[in-house]
Design a protein around this nucleic acid. Structure first.
Ligand SMILES: [Mn+2]
Ligand SMILES: [Mn+2]
Ligand SMILES: [Mn+2]
Ligand SMILES: [Mn+2]
Lengths: 230, 230
DNA sequence: CCCTGAGTTTAGCCTATCCTAACGAAGTAT
DNA sequence: ATACTTCGTTAGGATAGGCTAAACTCAGGG
Protein backbone atom coordinates (compact mmCIF):
# COMPACT_ATOMS: atom_id res chain seq x y z
CA UNK A 1 0.00 0.00 0.00
CA UNK A 2 1.16 3.49 -0.83
CA UNK A 3 0.81 5.78 2.15
CA UNK A 4 0.16 9.48 2.25
CA UNK A 5 3.79 10.05 3.24
CA UNK A 6 5.00 8.00 0.29
CA UNK A 7 2.80 10.00 -2.05
CA UNK A 8 4.32 13.20 -0.73
CA UNK A 9 7.83 11.89 -1.30
CA UNK A 10 7.02 10.77 -4.83
CA UNK A 11 5.32 14.05 -5.67
CA UNK A 12 8.28 16.01 -4.37
CA UNK A 13 10.84 13.87 -6.18
CA UNK A 14 8.84 14.47 -9.34
CA UNK A 15 8.89 18.21 -8.80
CA UNK A 16 12.61 18.30 -8.07
CA UNK A 17 13.38 16.12 -11.07
CA UNK A 18 11.56 18.64 -13.26
CA UNK A 19 13.35 21.61 -11.77
CA UNK A 20 16.79 20.04 -11.99
CA UNK A 21 18.33 19.21 -15.33
CA UNK A 22 18.04 15.47 -15.50
CA UNK A 23 20.38 14.78 -12.60
CA UNK A 24 19.04 12.50 -9.90
CA UNK A 25 17.55 14.23 -6.89
CA UNK A 26 19.77 14.45 -3.83
CA UNK A 27 18.67 13.24 -0.43
CA UNK A 28 19.33 16.61 1.14
CA UNK A 29 17.31 18.57 -1.40
CA UNK A 30 14.45 16.14 -1.03
CA UNK A 31 14.56 16.29 2.76
CA UNK A 32 14.59 20.07 2.68
CA UNK A 33 11.67 20.27 0.27
CA UNK A 34 9.66 17.96 2.50
CA UNK A 35 10.77 19.63 5.73
CA UNK A 36 12.08 16.38 7.19
CA UNK A 37 15.57 15.38 8.28
CA UNK A 38 17.97 13.77 5.83
CA UNK A 39 17.93 10.43 7.70
CA UNK A 40 14.14 10.33 7.41
CA UNK A 41 14.45 10.79 3.67
CA UNK A 42 17.08 8.07 3.41
CA UNK A 43 14.80 5.71 5.29
CA UNK A 44 11.82 6.41 3.09
CA UNK A 45 13.88 6.14 -0.08
CA UNK A 46 14.85 2.61 0.90
CA UNK A 47 11.21 1.72 1.31
CA UNK A 48 10.26 3.30 -2.01
CA UNK A 49 13.14 1.51 -3.76
CA UNK A 50 11.94 -1.74 -2.22
CA UNK A 51 8.56 -1.11 -3.87
CA UNK A 52 10.25 -0.26 -7.20
CA UNK A 53 8.78 3.22 -7.13
CA UNK A 54 12.18 4.91 -7.21
CA UNK A 55 15.69 3.95 -8.16
CA UNK A 56 18.00 4.84 -5.32
CA UNK A 57 21.74 4.91 -5.95
CA UNK A 58 23.15 5.48 -2.49
CA UNK A 59 25.08 8.73 -2.24
CA UNK A 60 24.17 9.61 -5.84
CA UNK A 61 20.47 10.34 -5.64
CA UNK A 62 16.99 9.11 -6.57
CA UNK A 63 15.04 8.87 -9.79
CA UNK A 64 11.41 7.94 -10.18
CA UNK A 65 10.68 4.66 -11.93
CA UNK A 66 7.78 4.68 -14.40
CA UNK A 67 5.60 3.24 -11.63
CA UNK A 68 6.72 5.97 -9.24
CA UNK A 69 6.10 8.66 -11.80
CA UNK A 70 2.60 7.34 -12.38
CA UNK A 71 1.81 7.71 -8.69
CA UNK A 72 3.35 11.18 -8.62
CA UNK A 73 1.29 12.30 -11.58
CA UNK A 74 -1.87 11.01 -9.97
CA UNK A 75 -1.16 13.05 -6.87
CA UNK A 76 -0.36 16.13 -8.94
CA UNK A 77 -3.58 15.62 -10.88
CA UNK A 78 -5.55 15.46 -7.65
CA UNK A 79 -3.80 18.53 -6.31
CA UNK A 80 -4.42 20.65 -9.37
CA UNK A 81 -8.00 19.51 -9.84
CA UNK A 82 -8.63 20.37 -6.21
CA UNK A 83 -7.06 23.81 -6.62
CA UNK A 84 -9.24 24.43 -9.64
CA UNK A 85 -12.35 23.14 -7.93
CA UNK A 86 -11.81 25.15 -4.76
CA UNK A 87 -11.38 28.32 -6.81
CA UNK A 88 -14.07 27.82 -9.43
CA UNK A 89 -16.77 26.07 -7.46
CA UNK A 90 -16.21 27.31 -3.94
CA UNK A 91 -14.87 30.78 -4.57
CA UNK A 92 -11.46 30.41 -2.95
CA UNK A 93 -8.81 33.01 -3.74
CA UNK A 94 -6.03 31.61 -5.86
CA UNK A 95 -3.45 32.17 -3.15
CA UNK A 96 -5.38 30.03 -0.67
CA UNK A 97 -5.99 26.91 -2.72
CA UNK A 98 -2.56 25.36 -2.49
CA UNK A 99 -2.53 24.71 1.22
CA UNK A 100 -6.02 23.23 1.21
CA UNK A 101 -5.26 21.04 -1.81
CA UNK A 102 -2.07 19.78 -0.20
CA UNK A 103 -4.07 18.27 2.62
CA UNK A 104 -6.87 16.84 0.51
CA UNK A 105 -4.89 15.49 -2.43
CA UNK A 106 -4.23 12.14 -0.77
CA UNK A 107 -7.88 11.37 -0.12
CA UNK A 108 -9.38 11.98 -3.54
CA UNK A 109 -11.16 8.85 -4.77
CA UNK A 110 -11.55 8.03 -8.44
CA UNK A 111 -15.17 9.06 -8.20
CA UNK A 112 -14.47 12.40 -6.57
CA UNK A 113 -11.74 13.06 -9.11
CA UNK A 114 -14.10 12.30 -11.98
CA UNK A 115 -16.91 14.43 -10.58
CA UNK A 116 -14.73 17.45 -9.93
CA UNK A 117 -13.21 17.07 -13.39
CA UNK A 118 -16.67 16.99 -14.99
CA UNK A 119 -18.02 19.84 -12.86
CA UNK A 120 -15.13 21.99 -14.05
CA UNK A 121 -15.59 21.02 -17.69
CA UNK A 122 -12.38 18.98 -17.91
CA UNK A 123 -9.87 21.76 -17.33
CA UNK A 124 -6.33 21.46 -18.66
CA UNK A 125 -4.65 23.91 -16.30
CA UNK A 126 -5.05 24.84 -12.65
CA UNK A 127 -5.68 28.40 -11.36
CA UNK A 128 -1.98 29.23 -11.62
CA UNK A 129 -1.76 27.90 -15.17
CA UNK A 130 0.03 24.70 -14.19
CA UNK A 131 -1.02 21.87 -16.49
CA UNK A 132 -3.24 19.14 -15.05
CA UNK A 133 -1.98 15.64 -15.88
CA UNK A 134 -4.52 13.54 -17.73
CA UNK A 135 -6.26 10.56 -16.18
CA UNK A 136 -3.93 8.41 -18.25
CA UNK A 137 -0.90 9.98 -16.61
CA UNK A 138 0.30 12.34 -19.31
CA UNK A 139 1.62 15.73 -18.23
CA UNK A 140 0.87 18.44 -20.80
CA UNK A 141 3.61 20.98 -21.50
CA UNK A 142 3.68 24.01 -19.22
CA UNK A 143 3.92 27.58 -20.44
CA UNK A 144 7.62 28.25 -20.12
CA UNK A 145 8.56 31.50 -21.85
CA UNK A 146 9.58 34.03 -19.17
CA UNK A 147 7.82 37.37 -19.45
CA UNK A 148 11.19 39.12 -19.53
CA UNK A 149 12.06 37.46 -22.84
CA UNK A 150 9.40 39.51 -24.60
CA UNK A 151 10.87 42.41 -26.53
CA UNK A 152 9.56 45.93 -26.05
CA UNK A 153 6.26 46.23 -27.89
CA UNK A 154 5.73 42.49 -27.99
CA UNK A 155 2.60 41.05 -26.42
CA UNK A 156 1.20 37.68 -25.47
CA UNK A 157 -1.07 35.80 -23.13
CA UNK A 158 -0.08 34.96 -19.60
CA UNK A 159 0.19 31.19 -19.45
CA UNK A 160 1.35 30.47 -15.96
CA UNK A 161 2.39 32.10 -12.71
CA UNK A 162 4.58 30.61 -10.01
CA UNK A 163 2.39 29.52 -7.11
CA UNK A 164 5.23 29.41 -4.61
CA UNK A 165 4.42 32.65 -2.77
CA UNK A 166 0.83 33.50 -1.77
CA UNK A 167 1.77 37.14 -1.19
CA UNK A 168 2.97 37.46 -4.79
CA UNK A 169 -0.22 35.82 -5.99
CA UNK A 170 -2.32 38.32 -4.08
CA UNK A 171 -0.31 41.20 -5.52
CA UNK A 172 -0.67 39.91 -9.06
CA UNK A 173 -4.39 39.41 -8.55
CA UNK A 174 -4.58 43.04 -7.48
CA UNK A 175 -3.04 44.05 -10.81
CA UNK A 176 -5.43 41.81 -12.72
CA UNK A 177 -2.67 39.51 -13.90
CA UNK A 178 -3.89 35.92 -14.28
CA UNK A 179 -3.34 33.12 -16.77
CA UNK A 180 -5.22 33.94 -19.96
CA UNK A 181 -4.82 37.69 -19.59
CA UNK A 182 -3.14 39.48 -22.52
CA UNK A 183 -0.04 41.46 -21.67
CA UNK A 184 2.05 43.89 -23.72
CA UNK A 185 5.61 44.70 -22.68
CA UNK A 186 5.97 48.42 -23.36
CA UNK A 187 9.59 48.67 -22.32
CA UNK A 188 12.25 46.87 -20.37
CA UNK A 189 14.34 49.26 -18.32
CA UNK A 190 18.07 48.65 -18.47
CA UNK A 191 20.42 47.21 -15.84
CA UNK A 192 17.86 44.64 -14.75
CA UNK A 193 15.30 47.34 -14.26
CA UNK A 194 11.57 46.78 -14.10
CA UNK A 195 9.28 45.97 -17.01
CA UNK A 196 6.59 48.40 -17.97
CA UNK A 197 3.60 46.35 -19.09
CA UNK A 198 0.10 47.02 -20.27
CA UNK A 199 -2.85 44.75 -19.55
CA UNK A 200 -4.21 43.96 -23.00
CA UNK A 201 -3.36 45.79 -26.18
CA UNK A 202 -5.54 48.90 -25.84
CA UNK A 203 -3.65 52.16 -25.42
CA UNK A 204 -6.12 53.04 -22.70
CA UNK A 205 -5.59 49.84 -20.70
CA UNK A 206 -3.93 49.96 -17.27
CA UNK A 207 -0.15 49.90 -17.13
CA UNK A 208 2.03 48.48 -14.38
CA UNK A 209 5.67 48.31 -13.41
CA UNK A 210 6.94 44.84 -12.57
CA UNK A 211 10.27 44.28 -10.85
CA UNK A 212 12.47 41.52 -12.17
CA UNK A 213 11.69 39.16 -9.33
CA UNK A 214 8.00 39.35 -10.01
CA UNK A 215 8.47 39.21 -13.78
CA UNK A 216 10.48 36.01 -13.33
CA UNK A 217 7.37 34.35 -11.87
CA UNK A 218 5.28 35.00 -14.98
CA UNK A 219 5.43 32.74 -18.01
CA UNK A 220 3.81 33.39 -21.36
CA UNK A 221 1.99 30.97 -23.61
CA UNK A 222 4.10 29.54 -26.39
CA UNK A 223 1.35 30.08 -29.00
CA UNK A 224 1.31 33.46 -30.65
CA UNK A 225 -1.76 35.30 -29.34
CA UNK A 226 -2.56 36.20 -32.97
CA UNK A 227 -2.47 39.92 -32.88
CA UNK A 228 -0.31 42.64 -31.41
CA UNK A 229 -2.66 44.62 -33.56
CA UNK A 230 -3.18 47.32 -30.91
CA UNK B 1 -3.22 17.95 19.30
CA UNK B 2 -6.26 15.91 18.47
CA UNK B 3 -5.45 13.26 15.89
CA UNK B 4 -7.67 11.77 13.24
CA UNK B 5 -7.87 8.57 15.28
CA UNK B 6 -8.96 10.50 18.36
CA UNK B 7 -11.64 12.28 16.36
CA UNK B 8 -12.96 8.93 15.21
CA UNK B 9 -13.10 7.63 18.76
CA UNK B 10 -14.89 10.74 20.00
CA UNK B 11 -17.37 10.69 17.13
CA UNK B 12 -18.13 7.02 17.76
CA UNK B 13 -18.51 7.47 21.50
CA UNK B 14 -20.94 10.29 20.76
CA UNK B 15 -22.96 8.06 18.45
CA UNK B 16 -23.06 5.18 20.93
CA UNK B 17 -24.03 7.50 23.77
CA UNK B 18 -27.00 8.67 21.69
CA UNK B 19 -28.08 5.16 20.79
CA UNK B 20 -27.80 3.84 24.32
CA UNK B 21 -29.99 5.21 27.09
CA UNK B 22 -27.67 7.34 29.10
CA UNK B 23 -25.44 4.48 30.23
CA UNK B 24 -21.72 4.96 29.65
CA UNK B 25 -20.34 3.34 26.51
CA UNK B 26 -18.55 0.04 26.99
CA UNK B 27 -15.05 -0.57 25.72
CA UNK B 28 -16.16 -3.59 23.72
CA UNK B 29 -19.00 -1.82 21.95
CA UNK B 30 -16.70 1.07 21.13
CA UNK B 31 -13.97 -1.25 19.84
CA UNK B 32 -16.46 -3.12 17.69
CA UNK B 33 -17.94 0.06 16.24
CA UNK B 34 -14.46 1.25 15.33
CA UNK B 35 -13.31 -2.15 14.09
CA UNK B 36 -10.33 -2.23 16.44
CA UNK B 37 -9.42 -4.63 19.24
CA UNK B 38 -10.60 -3.99 22.78
CA UNK B 39 -7.06 -3.35 24.07
CA UNK B 40 -6.60 -0.68 21.41
CA UNK B 41 -9.73 1.03 22.64
CA UNK B 42 -8.61 0.82 26.26
CA UNK B 43 -5.32 2.43 25.30
CA UNK B 44 -6.94 5.26 23.42
CA UNK B 45 -9.46 5.87 26.18
CA UNK B 46 -6.61 6.44 28.60
CA UNK B 47 -5.14 9.04 26.28
CA UNK B 48 -8.48 10.76 25.78
CA UNK B 49 -9.10 10.79 29.53
CA UNK B 50 -5.65 12.31 30.00
CA UNK B 51 -6.74 15.13 27.68
CA UNK B 52 -10.04 15.52 29.56
CA UNK B 53 -12.01 14.69 26.44
CA UNK B 54 -13.70 11.69 28.02
CA UNK B 55 -14.35 10.41 31.50
CA UNK B 56 -13.20 6.83 31.76
CA UNK B 57 -14.31 4.71 34.70
CA UNK B 58 -12.32 1.51 34.27
CA UNK B 59 -14.55 -1.51 33.75
CA UNK B 60 -17.66 0.71 33.75
CA UNK B 61 -17.38 2.67 30.52
CA UNK B 62 -16.72 6.07 28.98
CA UNK B 63 -18.64 9.30 28.74
CA UNK B 64 -17.76 12.37 26.71
CA UNK B 65 -16.84 15.48 28.65
CA UNK B 66 -18.23 18.78 27.31
CA UNK B 67 -14.87 19.34 25.57
CA UNK B 68 -15.02 15.88 24.01
CA UNK B 69 -18.58 16.39 22.87
CA UNK B 70 -17.60 19.66 21.25
CA UNK B 71 -14.96 17.87 19.18
CA UNK B 72 -17.39 15.08 18.31
CA UNK B 73 -20.01 17.55 17.14
CA UNK B 74 -17.48 19.33 14.97
CA UNK B 75 -16.58 16.07 13.27
CA UNK B 76 -20.25 15.19 12.81
CA UNK B 77 -20.87 18.64 11.36
CA UNK B 78 -18.06 18.16 8.88
CA UNK B 79 -19.31 14.71 7.98
CA UNK B 80 -22.87 15.79 7.33
CA UNK B 81 -21.92 18.96 5.49
CA UNK B 82 -19.68 16.85 3.28
CA UNK B 83 -22.46 14.34 2.63
CA UNK B 84 -24.78 17.17 1.68
CA UNK B 85 -22.19 18.86 -0.49
CA UNK B 86 -21.23 15.69 -2.32
CA UNK B 87 -24.86 14.98 -3.11
CA UNK B 88 -26.10 18.48 -3.92
CA UNK B 89 -23.06 19.98 -5.60
CA UNK B 90 -21.34 16.99 -7.11
CA UNK B 91 -24.27 14.73 -7.87
CA UNK B 92 -23.33 11.77 -5.69
CA UNK B 93 -26.01 9.20 -4.94
CA UNK B 94 -27.13 9.30 -1.33
CA UNK B 95 -25.86 5.82 -0.67
CA UNK B 96 -22.33 6.73 -1.73
CA UNK B 97 -21.73 9.86 0.30
CA UNK B 98 -21.07 8.29 3.69
CA UNK B 99 -17.89 6.47 2.80
CA UNK B 100 -16.42 9.49 1.05
CA UNK B 101 -17.36 11.82 3.90
CA UNK B 102 -15.84 9.46 6.45
CA UNK B 103 -12.45 9.91 4.84
CA UNK B 104 -12.66 13.65 4.32
CA UNK B 105 -14.28 14.73 7.57
CA UNK B 106 -10.98 15.03 9.42
CA UNK B 107 -9.42 17.41 6.92
CA UNK B 108 -12.13 20.04 6.62
CA UNK B 109 -10.75 23.46 7.50
CA UNK B 110 -12.89 26.22 8.93
CA UNK B 111 -12.82 27.92 5.56
CA UNK B 112 -13.88 24.85 3.61
CA UNK B 113 -16.63 24.20 6.14
CA UNK B 114 -17.92 27.76 5.80
CA UNK B 115 -17.81 27.71 2.01
CA UNK B 116 -19.63 24.40 1.68
CA UNK B 117 -22.19 25.59 4.20
CA UNK B 118 -22.80 28.79 2.23
CA UNK B 119 -22.85 27.01 -1.14
CA UNK B 120 -25.58 24.74 0.21
CA UNK B 121 -27.60 27.60 1.65
CA UNK B 122 -26.93 26.68 5.29
CA UNK B 123 -28.70 23.31 5.36
CA UNK B 124 -30.02 21.92 8.63
CA UNK B 125 -30.13 18.24 7.69
CA UNK B 126 -27.94 15.96 5.59
CA UNK B 127 -29.19 13.85 2.65
CA UNK B 128 -30.48 11.17 5.03
CA UNK B 129 -32.32 13.72 7.17
CA UNK B 130 -29.79 13.61 10.01
CA UNK B 131 -29.50 17.04 11.61
CA UNK B 132 -26.31 19.03 11.02
CA UNK B 133 -24.85 20.45 14.24
CA UNK B 134 -24.48 24.22 14.18
CA UNK B 135 -21.14 25.96 14.06
CA UNK B 136 -21.64 26.71 17.74
CA UNK B 137 -21.90 23.00 18.52
CA UNK B 138 -25.64 22.58 19.00
CA UNK B 139 -27.22 19.41 17.67
CA UNK B 140 -30.80 20.01 16.45
CA UNK B 141 -33.36 17.35 17.29
CA UNK B 142 -33.64 14.48 14.83
CA UNK B 143 -36.90 13.19 13.40
CA UNK B 144 -37.66 10.28 15.67
CA UNK B 145 -41.18 8.98 15.11
CA UNK B 146 -40.96 5.53 13.51
CA UNK B 147 -43.06 5.13 10.40
CA UNK B 148 -44.76 2.10 11.93
CA UNK B 149 -46.28 4.25 14.67
CA UNK B 150 -48.52 5.94 12.12
CA UNK B 151 -52.06 4.62 12.22
CA UNK B 152 -53.78 3.41 9.06
CA UNK B 153 -54.86 6.45 7.05
CA UNK B 154 -52.43 8.73 8.84
CA UNK B 155 -49.87 10.61 6.79
CA UNK B 156 -46.78 12.70 7.35
CA UNK B 157 -43.48 13.80 5.91
CA UNK B 158 -40.45 11.57 5.91
CA UNK B 159 -37.93 13.22 8.20
CA UNK B 160 -35.03 10.85 8.31
CA UNK B 161 -33.83 7.51 7.02
CA UNK B 162 -31.16 5.30 8.58
CA UNK B 163 -27.96 5.63 6.56
CA UNK B 164 -26.47 2.41 7.88
CA UNK B 165 -27.08 0.25 4.81
CA UNK B 166 -26.33 1.57 1.31
CA UNK B 167 -28.39 -1.21 -0.26
CA UNK B 168 -31.46 -0.10 1.67
CA UNK B 169 -30.83 3.49 0.65
CA UNK B 170 -30.70 2.49 -3.00
CA UNK B 171 -33.93 0.54 -2.65
CA UNK B 172 -35.70 3.44 -0.97
CA UNK B 173 -34.43 5.82 -3.63
CA UNK B 174 -35.97 3.50 -6.21
CA UNK B 175 -39.34 3.88 -4.48
CA UNK B 176 -38.96 7.64 -4.34
CA UNK B 177 -38.74 7.70 -0.56
CA UNK B 178 -36.52 10.52 0.70
CA UNK B 179 -36.65 13.01 3.56
CA UNK B 180 -39.28 15.61 2.78
CA UNK B 181 -41.51 13.24 0.81
CA UNK B 182 -45.10 12.90 2.06
CA UNK B 183 -46.21 9.41 2.96
CA UNK B 184 -49.61 7.99 3.84
CA UNK B 185 -49.89 4.68 5.67
CA UNK B 186 -52.85 2.94 4.09
CA UNK B 187 -52.80 -0.12 6.28
CA UNK B 188 -50.57 -2.05 8.60
CA UNK B 189 -50.86 -5.78 8.06
CA UNK B 190 -51.14 -7.84 11.25
CA UNK B 191 -48.60 -10.11 12.91
CA UNK B 192 -45.74 -7.73 12.11
CA UNK B 193 -46.75 -7.74 8.49
CA UNK B 194 -45.72 -5.11 5.98
CA UNK B 195 -47.03 -1.58 5.74
CA UNK B 196 -48.92 -0.51 2.67
CA UNK B 197 -47.97 3.12 2.01
CA UNK B 198 -48.77 5.71 -0.58
CA UNK B 199 -46.33 8.37 -1.74
CA UNK B 200 -48.19 11.61 -1.14
CA UNK B 201 -51.89 11.93 -0.44
CA UNK B 202 -53.31 11.57 -3.93
CA UNK B 203 -55.41 8.44 -4.50
CA UNK B 204 -53.58 8.05 -7.81
CA UNK B 205 -50.09 8.19 -6.29
CA UNK B 206 -47.85 5.11 -6.29
CA UNK B 207 -48.26 2.62 -3.47
CA UNK B 208 -45.62 0.37 -2.01
CA UNK B 209 -45.31 -2.45 0.48
CA UNK B 210 -42.64 -1.99 3.12
CA UNK B 211 -41.47 -4.83 5.33
CA UNK B 212 -41.03 -4.12 9.00
CA UNK B 213 -37.25 -4.05 8.79
CA UNK B 214 -37.33 -1.36 6.15
CA UNK B 215 -40.12 0.55 7.88
CA UNK B 216 -38.02 0.63 11.05
CA UNK B 217 -35.40 2.65 9.17
CA UNK B 218 -37.81 5.44 8.31
CA UNK B 219 -38.66 8.21 10.75
CA UNK B 220 -41.32 10.86 10.33
CA UNK B 221 -41.18 14.55 11.12
CA UNK B 222 -42.66 15.49 14.45
CA UNK B 223 -44.54 18.49 13.02
CA UNK B 224 -47.96 17.71 11.65
CA UNK B 225 -47.71 17.99 7.86
CA UNK B 226 -50.87 20.12 7.99
CA UNK B 227 -53.24 18.11 5.93
CA UNK B 228 -54.18 14.48 5.43
CA UNK B 229 -56.74 16.27 3.35
CA UNK B 230 -56.42 13.83 0.44
C1' DC C 1 48.69 11.18 -1.92
C1' DC C 2 46.52 12.50 1.99
C1' DC C 3 43.13 15.44 4.27
C1' DT C 4 39.04 17.71 4.77
C1' DG C 5 34.25 18.97 4.51
C1' DA C 6 29.79 18.50 2.42
C1' DG C 7 26.46 15.38 1.97
C1' DT C 8 24.57 10.61 3.14
C1' DT C 9 23.82 6.80 5.63
C1' DT C 10 23.77 4.01 9.95
C1' DA C 11 22.64 3.46 14.80
C1' DG C 12 19.68 4.09 18.25
C1' DC C 13 15.38 6.27 19.92
C1' DC C 14 10.70 8.17 20.14
C1' DT C 15 5.60 8.50 19.41
C1' DA C 16 1.20 7.01 17.64
C1' DT C 17 -1.67 3.34 16.80
C1' DC C 18 -2.62 -1.15 16.26
C1' DC C 19 -2.30 -6.32 17.57
C1' DT C 20 -2.45 -11.07 20.40
C1' DA C 21 -2.06 -13.51 24.62
C1' DA C 22 -2.64 -13.62 29.30
C1' DC C 23 -4.69 -11.97 33.44
C1' DG C 24 -8.31 -10.06 36.48
C1' DA C 25 -12.90 -8.47 37.94
C1' DA C 26 -17.73 -9.01 38.36
C1' DG C 27 -21.86 -10.77 37.68
C1' DT C 28 -24.61 -15.48 36.78
C1' DA C 29 -25.74 -19.92 37.57
C1' DT C 30 -25.55 -23.88 40.01
C1' DA D 1 -20.47 -20.30 48.29
C1' DT D 2 -18.21 -21.59 44.34
C1' DA D 3 -17.40 -21.96 39.59
C1' DC D 4 -18.34 -20.28 35.01
C1' DT D 5 -18.54 -16.61 31.72
C1' DT D 6 -18.17 -12.20 29.99
C1' DC D 7 -15.83 -8.27 29.54
C1' DG D 8 -11.92 -5.14 30.25
C1' DT D 9 -7.22 -4.31 31.32
C1' DT D 10 -2.31 -5.32 31.43
C1' DA D 11 1.86 -7.09 29.14
C1' DG D 12 4.52 -7.39 25.38
C1' DG D 13 5.31 -6.50 20.52
C1' DA D 14 4.69 -4.82 15.68
C1' DT D 15 4.75 -1.08 12.10
C1' DA D 16 5.06 3.55 10.14
C1' DG D 17 7.15 7.69 10.32
C1' DG D 18 10.09 10.98 12.33
C1' DC D 19 14.49 12.66 15.08
C1' DT D 20 19.55 13.33 16.79
C1' DA D 21 24.21 11.94 16.97
C1' DA D 22 27.80 9.56 14.98
C1' DA D 23 30.09 7.37 11.21
C1' DC D 24 31.09 7.02 6.51
C1' DT D 25 32.20 8.40 1.40
C1' DC D 26 34.29 10.81 -1.90
C1' DA D 27 35.54 14.77 -4.58
C1' DG D 28 38.61 18.22 -4.54
C1' DG D 29 42.54 21.27 -2.31
C1' DG D 30 46.88 21.25 -0.58
MN1 LIG E 1 -0.31 23.85 -5.51
MN1 LIG F 1 -1.23 25.36 -8.66
MN1 LIG G 1 -22.67 9.32 7.27
MN1 LIG H 1 -25.89 10.96 6.75
Amino acid sequence: MISKAMEDYLKTIYKLEREGRGEPVGTGALAEALAVSAPSATGMLKKLAELHLVEHNPRRGVTLTPAGEKVALEVVRHHRLLESYLKEALGYDWDAVHEEADRLEHLVSDELEARMDAALGYPTVDPHGDPIPTREGVMPAAASRPLATLAGGESGLIGRVSDADPAKLRYLAGLGLFPGVALTVLETLPFNGPLRVRVGHDPGAPEHLLGRELAADIFMRAEDPAGASG
